[in-house]
Simulated assay, not measured.
Amino acid sequence: MSAGGSIRRVDERLGLAICRVSLSGRTLVTYARDHVTVRTPSRPDFRDGNTIDLLAPPPQEALADWVGRFRDTIGMLGVPDAHLRWETPLPIDAPPGRPVPDAALASAAHRLGLSLQPLTVLLLDDLQAPPPAPATIAPVPPPSAVDPQPTDRRWHAATVLYRYDAEDVGDPDAWRQWDEQFVAWSVDVQRELAAGGRAQVWVAQRHGAPVARATLAHDRQGLAAVEDVIVHPVHRRLGLAAAITHAAVAAHLHLDPGARVGLAAEPGGRAERIYRRLGFVPHATVWTARPR
């Protein structure tokens, strides 16, 4: 119990922790009484790697002070825009949908040139097997200095799928706008995590070609997160996202049966509905205050 005598949730602020699971040693994470500072000096453009995570929703009158603190600390690294996050709890039976932000906070953010963007964090309750999918799903070992060529080709194939990281790709040339340099840096970080035993990349193949990918990262302390579930637009709505997510989670639970597994999804989107069918339930809304 807390000092005031109220019952404290054991999984309090787990939503923000899920969002930080895949951070590597390139990112500095420091903990204070009322916030967590996340800084990536080598990549000021890494938005989720340069943020202040508040341990409670801020009072509207304090939002400007937090923006000022961001600029005086993380902003000194060359990060151009303030990025603040906090979470609010969701009941496990909350229906899918986009939540409404606190009106006072939304108004305060608007005056500062910010908007409040929600992300739904779900936690695994009871893993459910999806219907069979028409693909071969297997993990990709991290590239090895001993025999790098076969793995490197598979790793590259998984990387190329980042071009289609969108729920709905209406423009066949939209992938040309992806930030190839940043993706290469992100994949290099992921390679470090995989080589260190903190991440596993999975790929689904159809007709010999990679058509879907997913990553499961963990913190070695019992917390894991599924990220970067991407399916090629031509092969969507075949159950591949559910199948590859299930395979990654099942494999991790086989190694660590007591692990807490979570993931984040756009509120009310198709991905959230897929994850709910796999046995994930709502845990929290992570709100991000960032420039409009």
Rank of each mutant, 00 (worst) to 15 (best):
P257V: 09
A17R: 15
D171Y: 04
I137G: 00
A56W: 01
V203S: 12
R163P: 00
T151S: 13
E167V: 03
A32L: 10
R176H: 10
L127M: 06
D81P: 01
V146Q: 14
T288R: 11
L216V: 14
G68V: 01
P172V: 00
I74A: 00
A224M: 08
H246K: 04
D219Q: 01
G78D: 05
D125K: 12
T40G: 00
L90D: 10
H156L: 14
R13C: 13
H83L: 09
W175G: 07
G258A: 12
A247L: 08
P139M: 04
R20Q: 14
G15N: 05
S42E: 10
L77D: 15
P41K: 06
L63S: 07
T288G: 02
G258K: 03
W202Y: 15
V36Q: 09
S24V: 00
T40E: 00
V10D: 14
P57T: 10
V187A: 11
A135Q: 02
A248V: 11
V146R: 14
S42G: 05
I274N: 05
L54M: 11
V38K: 02
Q117Y: 09
A103I: 11
G5A: 04
L63E: 07
A133G: 02
L63G: 09
P57G: 07
V183L: 14
A248W: 04
Q149S: 08
A94G: 02
L16V: 11
W202K: 08
A242T: 07
S144M: 09
S6T: 13
P233R: 11
Q60H: 13
M76N: 06
Q177F: 13
T159R: 12
H207M: 11
H83M: 08
D65H: 11
A214R: 05
L255C: 12
D81G: 01
R85K: 13
L116R: 04
H246M: 03
G208S: 03
R236W: 09
R236A: 09
L54G: 12
A271E: 05
V36P: 07
I52M: 08
F46M: 06
H218P: 09
A214Y: 08
R290I: 12
D11T: 15
R71C: 05
P134R: 00
L123F: 11
W86Y: 13
Q128D: 10
E227T: 13
E192S: 14
V140K: 03
P96K: 05
P210R: 00
Q205K: 02
R20Y: 06
I18E: 05
S6M: 04
I18G: 06
P41H: 04
P101F: 10
W86F: 15
C19W: 12
V203M: 04
G279Y: 04
V79M: 02
G222L: 02
Q128H: 14
T215P: 00
T285W: 05
A204V: 06
A243Q: 01
A264Y: 07
E272P: 06
G49C: 03
Q205L: 06
T40H: 01
V249H: 01
P139G: 07
R206F: 01
L55D: 02
L127V: 10
T30C: 02
A217Q: 06
A243W: 00
L63A: 07
F182M: 08
I7A: 15
